[in-house]
């Protein structure tokens, strides 16, 4: 029932759990998002998988693309207080590094923007509606690719050891979304 307990279980029996999850995914219709998303193309430092959805890029040394790095920063500022460090969950919110094993890009965007409620079982879980929060929505792809990398175990705990430089396109998009710095 609790993600807290579930998490410790998953650490002990990670492999078995992944198999169970895959089975569950086959049963569910939302299959996309289950497999590691290899980067198939890139534009201005942003990477996309074969289906055109944003994804991460990690080289052999552990160096990540800028979007993944920015996602780590924004996740840690905006999501950590509920979802725990490194997407590992807390005593009252799910481990997103696990959730993204089955949650599709579209469902991720919709859950963040619209929120979600689960009010049963003695602990009310409420994901807020963040659709109007610029600090989240201006960086939503960054947060997604970071968590995707965490769920695929392509990126470990803590700050990625190295990252690509900030692309001009990213900076322009940030200013367009957040408003120019004062």
């Amino acid at each position: 029932m609790t993600d807290f307990a579930e998490h410790s279980k998953s650490r002990r029996a990670g492999k078995r759990r992944r198999v169970v999850l895959l089975l569950a995914l086959c049963a569910a219709a939302s299959g996309a998002g289950a497999e590691p998303r290899a980067a198939a193309s890139s534009q201005d430092g942003k990477y996309f998988d074969a289906e055109g959805e944003p994804t991460y890029k990690v080289d052999a040394s552990g160096k990540v693309d800028w979007y993944t790095y920015s996602g780590f920063l924004r996740y840690s500022a905006e999501c950590l207080r509920c979802h725990g460090p490194d997407g590992l969950g807390s005593s009252y919110a799910p481990a997103l590094a696990d959730s993204l094993k089955k949650l599709s890009y579209a469902d991720f965007l919709s859950t963040v923007a619209n929120g979600r409620k689960n009010l049963e079982g003695g602990q009310e879980k409420v994901m807020p509606t963040l659709g109007l929060d610029k600090n989240v929505m201006c960086f939503i792809d960054d947060i997604y690719v970071y968590l995707k990398a965490r769920s695929d175990e392509a990126v470990g705990r803590n700050r990625p050891p190295a990252h690509d430089p900030k692309p001009k396109a990213w900076e322009d998009a940030e200013n367009a979304c957040m408003g120019a710095p004062s």
């Binding site: 920063l73 840690s76 500022a77 460090p85 989240v136 957040m178």
Partner: peptide, 21 residues
């Protein structure tokens, strides 16, 4: 470790602006 960065204020939304480990 503490890394501050720019955030914008929206009433009723978190207004944090730092990444901590």
């Amino acid at each position: 470790d503490y890394e501050p960065f720019r955030v914008s204020y929206t009433p009723g939304q978190p207004y944090v602006g730092a990444t901590l480990a």
